Amino acid sequence: MKRTVLAVVITVNAMAAHAQSSVTLYGRIDNGFQFETGLPGGHRFTAESGDWGCSWLGLQGAEDLGGDTQAIFQLESLLNTQTGALWGNLFARHATIGMTNARMGTLKLGNLGAGELSQDSLWVDPQLMQRYGISTLVRGRNWASATNGFEYTSPDLMGLTLKGQYDLTNNYNWNNSTTPGGQGRADGIEAIYNVGAAQLRVIYDEIRGANGSFDNVYAHSRSLMTGGTYAVGPVRLYAGYQHLNAPGATNASVGVTNTSQPAGVSAPTSVDHAWLGAAWQVTGVTTVTGAVYHANANHGNGNGTMYTLGGTYNLSKRTFLYTELGYLHNSSTSNLSLGSDSYGNNNYDPVANTASNDNPVYGHSQAGVFAGIMTSF
């Protein structure tokens, strides 16, 4: 491992010297503890990596090509810093090359990964996409990823910025995945408008299933999201709305059966999701955040409401402590979970003390708290 790190450092230095370009090795580490109740087997206390945000390690660089144009690249790996293992492929988060110009905009090609447009919902989330945040009640739909793609971001047009993405499947069929059960074609567009103390954001994206259809509202669906923030002194206010649509969703396509669902409940084809919240900069080093999220799914799936309260304390410019509390209340036919688990019954086996997911029993609530430390470099 030491030889590998040394080789990376030597390579980075050599690249910088030869190409007269800027190359940066960067990353961040998030580790902490978590306690949650209402799980299929009761409660659980765990050590966690990434409750506030993912841990990663990356390289990014730029080379001056003249005429105010730069060639750019980014390689980024997602890490489980409790075990030291990679989460996914080596550069699952980003593996792109492109060009940027202040007057013409920015073009990127390759694995856009965590740059998929739904992940920009971070900026309209009072909890900044922590474990209990904007992705929870949509079972992780806003953590979508994009491969085999290209992205264009416009320059600032009097406060307006536009971004568009298109992700190919590399298959004979334009929409279908090359991998059975995988993700098909994805695309989207985003508009960001900054005016005074306000920022408005609209995101539309499509994630297709392996057969090219919208067959799971929480994974392969159309998403339309709009939200905004407004700063009033030390307080930033947040509000937003999201609609998910998957007209091809069936019990079979989401992996459930009629007997495993409550009476009258079947796979949802649409979800409406809304939230309100605020972030208060109490002091120069302390921030308190609070938010309420509500989601309602059709076809008898009911609704869930999540209440959150969090805070951060900066130890330095690079390191901070964090904590967040969450309480999720489900209606009688809903089993949304704090862990953003996939749709369906938990199939809990009390003898073996095992479950297929961490969804609560239908109609039951969950509560949780986590705390940890994040540092970046």
Rank of each mutant, 00 (worst) to 15 (best):
D167M: 11
D120F: 06
L59D: 00
W123Q: 01
G110C: 01
T24M: 06
R201W: 03
R3F: 12
I72K: 12
M158V: 09
G113I: 04
P360V: 03
A352G: 04
S331C: 04
V202Q: 09
V288H: 04
Y26R: 06
P360G: 01
T83L: 04
P126E: 08
L224N: 05
V254N: 02
N175F: 07
Q60C: 02
D156W: 06
L137A: 01
V282T: 06
Y307W: 13
L224S: 05
T375Y: 07
V9Y: 10
L200V: 10
A274W: 10
P234T: 09
Q366R: 11
Y218R: 01
Q70F: 10
G133M: 01
N345W: 03
L75D: 06
V12M: 07
A219S: 13
T136H: 01
G53N: 10
L325W: 14
V288I: 15
D349C: 05
I97Y: 02
G228L: 12
G149S: 09
E116Y: 14
Q242H: 04
V256S: 07
S365L: 02
G196D: 13
T269H: 14
L325A: 15
M225A: 08
Y322V: 02
V232C: 06
S270M: 10
V369Q: 10
S118P: 01
N303F: 14
N335H: 07
G58L: 08
E63Q: 13
W52P: 00
G304V: 10
N89Q: 15
N314C: 05
T106L: 04
Y322D: 00
G38V: 14
L107S: 01
A297T: 12
G304N: 06
